[in-house]
Design a protein around this nucleic acid. Structure first.
Lengths: 146, 146
DNA sequence: TTTGTTTAGTTGCATAAACAACTATATGTC
DNA sequence: GACATATAGTTGTTTATGCAACTAAACAAA
């Protein structure tokens, strides 16, 4: 099965994901402009903790599509910034439960606003129908490779 | 203008580009399996040199959406692997022209095969029409943020 | 020719990713 | 209980990114 719908050059940008790279950079820039001093990778961890506080590191791995060492170090850095704390689980002493500090909780509203703004900037002129299809395609790609 | 078409969680994966991350990882895995010992970032530079040999580093920056330090170091590593060589330009002594070695040229066919295979794996079950729209959306996102 | 500005590339630093090797705890089986 | 195995997390190494500061060459204006 040949993908003749992919001309040279298009293959490249589809594989390297220039659009999502651009969104990530813009989000980082918008954080900086708003004097929110976190990286987009740190944001991606906080994002899931805001939805469900006290996740284990393994759960954060699954949620953020990262491996364990990556999460170990992201949590290290978030701890240094005093945005989260590692709490040893009482049921299972292997587990660290990652909980937000007051400071970490406080960031949520502002950050989510910036993320939504960024997405609106990215999607200007794109119709809801197009977005629906793009989301479907990206989900199928992800499922195909899982 | 609010993007109510993005529910929580979808926003996250759109911004973080989990699909393109997955494609990149699969490409890397497929390179490794085929005993092609390069990173996908190195591949992304070679890809453009295969299309046009002798590009300057600045041209590679534009083609790959990377900044100058990134290209400096990618070219450093490609030189170590003896896949490319820096040639000082005679017209403009500030410029390095990056040229493929015999070994670098030789990789093209095999690598492009692997890249195409990877893309076919990723796009299984996705129709040409859907791909067209997804490409359009990603291009619009990129243009909006450029 | 001198001076200022732009362009091309490099270096230093902090953060992050992928992989392998490791420790410690939990669990399943005999 | 003893042993093997699976799970949770950490550490070391290499590669890569983004930003700021830098050098060197080219160009433009006076």
């Amino acid at each position: 099965m040949s993908n003749n719908q992919f001309k040279k050059g298009e293959l490249y940008s589809f594989i390297t994901g220039k659009a999502s790279t651009a969104i990530g950079r813009r989000l980082q820039k918008n954080f900086k402009q708003a004097e929110v001093e976190i990286t987009i990778e740190q944001w991606s961890v906080l994002y899931h903790l805001w939805k469900e506080d006290g996740m284990s590191q393994q759960q954060l791995c699954d949620a953020t599509f990262r491996d364990k060492p990556s999460i170990t170090r992201l949590v290290d850095n978030l701890e240094k910034l005093k945005l989260v704390k590692r709490n040893a689980s009482k049921e299972d002493r292997r587990k660290n439960l990652i909980v937000l500090t007051a400071e970490g909780k406080q960031l949520e509203e502002h950050c989510m606003e910036i993320a939504n703004t960024t997405l609106n900037e990215a999607l200007q002129g794109v119709t809801n129908g197009q977005i629906e299809i793009a989301k479907e395609v990206l989900q199928m790609v992800y499922d195909n490779l899982k």
